[in-house]
Design a protein around this nucleic acid. Structure first.
Lengths: 168, 168
DNA sequence: TATTGTTATACTCTATAACTATA
DNA sequence: TATAGTTATAGAGTATAACAATA
């Protein structure tokens, strides 16, 4: 077999690196979007994993670390580390549950709520940056296609695979 | 501010986790696609980072580790580690260049070439799996939208951001 | 005995910096 | 003195397993 491979019939020396498939583009553009988002929220002092956690706690205040671990499909000790970070940053509070003193009820602090507002603003700016090449119709089209894939692949809405462990 | 946040006006307790934006979906679906691909190629004994490296060496045999490090925007020692792995697996060979004995000319072995063929087959199956929810028109549409984003965001065609370091 | 959370520990990934050998 | 590659080392991230408190 020659050195030529992949799609093109006229592989010049490292010439036109052809389009690749949708799967590669998804992974490439997705990783880029994630990295840019991480940069943005870094200014708030939080990491990407914090974002989903804060949202989950805000949506259902008082939930336990166990429930987070289950929904994210991570090991409980991972949640300990992440909540430790959020508590140290003053964004989340662990409250002992008098009914069952084994579990911790998680709540956002006032500052945690503030950070969530800022996160939403950053998220909006991020969305515009990533989609700068598309007009409104195209954005809607893209969202539709991605949602179709996500649903068919059994991705839980709003749950980022970057947390996972067990599913690995 | 109440516990209600984000898009929906009727946030039931953890009810409908709304669509999120295109940026989140890209990151979510992209990470999923990458993880599934990693699983597949794991059967070949290679990791995702190996794939791009093998392709780059196949496309331009004899290239140096330096040139790989530059194109991928990683530190040279990272390339050492990765090529060590590929050499240990018997897929790549370092040949001393008699003209300049400082650098190593990299070449695929016969087995490396074989693995690339298998990778292409797996890649094709992977593409079909990820796009199972879409018909042909929709796949083409998706590729078009993603290419537009990739170009506008200055992503080098075929270079996955997962290697990066400096650009962080 | 089962459950929640924590700690101790180890492993993987990847960067930095010092170093070797060539030039 | 500059360049290609390597080694030694350290840090981040995340898993496993043993453990403590409570039920």
């Amino acid at each position: 077999m020659s050195t030529k491979q992949q799609t093109g019939p006229d592989d010049g020396p490292a010439s036109r690196s052809r389009p690749r498939g949708a799967a590669f583009l998804l992974s490439q553009v997705g990783a880029h979007a994630a990295a840019r988002f991480a940069e943005r929220i870094g200014d708030l002092g939080v990491i990407p994993a914090d974002v989903g956690l804060l949202r989950m706690i805000a949506t259902r205040p008082g939930r336990s670390q166990q429930s987070l671990a289950e929904e994210l499909a991570v090991v409980p000790s991972r949640v300990v580390t992440l909540i430790d970070g959020l508590e140290r940053k003053g964004l989340v509070e662990r409250r002992r549950n008098p009914r069952d003193r084994r579990n911790h009820a998680l709540h956002l602090t006032a500052e945690g709520t503030l950070v969530m507002t800022r996160m939403r603003e950053l998220g909006s700016a991020h969305e515009n940056e990533i989609c700068a090449a598309l007009d409104d119709d195209q954005r809607a089209q893209l969202i539709g296609l991605l949602e179709a894939i996500a649903a068919q692949q059994n991705l839980a809405p709003g749950v980022h695979p970057g947390y996972r462990q067990t599913s690995r």
